[in-house]
Design a protein around this nucleic acid. Structure first.
Lengths: 263, 263
DNA sequence: CGATCGTTTGACAAGGGTCAAAATGCGTGG
DNA sequence: CCACGCATTTTGACCCTTGTCAAACGATCG
């Protein structure tokens, strides 16, 4: 296997404009609150804490390294707007993107003391973050965090299956469905349409392919009416077909209630 | 991609004998206690709880499904002896093994209420399990569980990188190193030698390859003096070489102390 | 001693990688 | 407003790693 060693592209050009990023997610409350309240019933205290936290926003430019692999984790953020990713880079330049972080996701929240970062996290587009409120053991917020962590585990397991047993087209289909669904949870995707601020090379690094092959596969999918890409937006015209292709099932984390109404 | 549909082999023949499985791990205390006490300093209460739990052992035959994907998780076990795996099977028969569970590992321990199993878990060899003691929030045991969960996340992330960016030889090398190290933590590997109760097909299903290709790659590695396999035991004669091949770094989860002495 | 399961081999096919160059799009500075 | 520079997408030709299919071989077990 020949190795490559070159600069790593990060952000889709269309998405350098923070305005574009901000307007959708912040309308109608923080995406963090939205997402967590779909995972469990939040009480007033939790909602209060989340709303307070969401007032203390910070911005990070694209390419900024939020957390570095192996370093102690100091702060816990929530992502309010923009995309980030967890990645690992090998010494010969190969890169694996382990997961994408979307608005509403938590960063650096974990249960044990003196945690070290498992992976580097970098901003893909311009980000808006806020501190993640601390959750007392037993609180509704703690339950929400735990379910959020469980969901993250599902995504990792799904990713392992994608990389281990899916071919290129299946990987893309499955990833698109999952991503669309995650975005829909915070209102960032409507009618199977959603922003996709990634280069094909990033997609390749996430899906264990080369950018050339991602390109060809995307073209084939467009030809087959499975996908439309325009100006950094994706649209899935034939969701059924895609779902059939990969036996897609949305991730569920706990029995009984999920999908609680936003308070 | 042509699909396959056939019976799924589970256990290496050499390992049907429970005696073989039992003698090593149970010598010198439960592997669960050993492993957790290397993750954090356990207090007397935790040690007590773990020792009590370890008296209530249960056995499961190979191929038994311990937990089924999507079902509510009722019990929390610790694995005391034998190997199990988490797996996902696609409707066309393709299988992905998501991770292996080794002696000392926890099964079904999670933080939120009404959890649903993320994956099916099945016994590879005959198993010995015990109930996992409940951890009060803030206790040393809770800290140990949290660190254990964090470690599990590392393994998943490493697996994603393996599948996404490593070729066949690298995947095997990396997986062998990781597995050897995990076993060494509970004293199940000494001098780079360890039991490997897997068929090449299981290895293939874990590493995203076919059994034919695993076979050929293993042969090449043996020729190159990287690996010796005999009767279900593996030996790594040239650890340095293997580590260089994949830039292997053991997983670390928290700053300051790990590797606490067993009390 | 078949039956079964796992390993090994061979011949061949194909999905995906590599390399290189052209085409496209976009932001910047003149 | 245009031209230039840079990043990204697209294309083509070629090759290699890995998958597929099939059969032989070896062990283990009733």
């Amino acid at each position: 296997m020949i190795k490559r060693m070159k600069s790593l592209p990060l952000c889709h050009p269309q998405w350098s404009d923070p305005m574009t990023i901000l307007k959708a997610p912040l309308a109608g409350g923080s995406p963090l609150l939205t997402r967590l309240s779909r995972l469990t019933r939040l009480d007033d205290m939790a909602v209060e804490a989340l709303q307070t936290a969401a007032r203390d926003v910070r911005r990070s430019p694209p390419r900024r390294e939020l957390i570095s692999e192996g370093e102690p984790i100091r702060e816990r953020y929530a992502l309010l707007a923009g995309w980030a990713c967890r990645q690992r880079i090998l010494s010969d330049g190969r890169r694996q993107i382990l997961s994408f972080l979307l608005p509403g996701d938590l960063i650096g929240v974990c249960q044990h003391s003196n945690p070290l970062a498992a992976t580097t996290i970098i901003a893909i587009s311009e980000l808006v973050t806020c501190p993640a409120p601390v959750a007392d053991p037993g609180s509704a917020l703690a339950e929400a965090y735990a379910r959020s962590a469980a969901l993250e585990e599902r995504y990792m397991l799904a990713h392992i299956t994608r990389l281990g047993r899916f071919d290129a087209r299946e990987r893309l289909a499955d990833w698109l469905l999952e991503t669309q669904q995650r975005l829909a949870t915070t209102g960032l995707s409507v009618a199977d349409q959603f922003p996709l601020p990634l280069t094909q090379e990033m997609l390749a690094d996430a899906l264990g392919l080369t950018s050339v092959h991602v390109n060809r596969t995307l073209q084939a999918m467009r030809r087959d009416g499975l996908l439309i890409l325009r100006q950094g937006m994706a649209f899935l015209p034939d969701r059924d077909q895609l779902e059939k292709l990969v036996e897609y099932k949305p991730a569920r984390v706990s029995a009984g209630g999920e999908n609680y109404a936003t308070p």
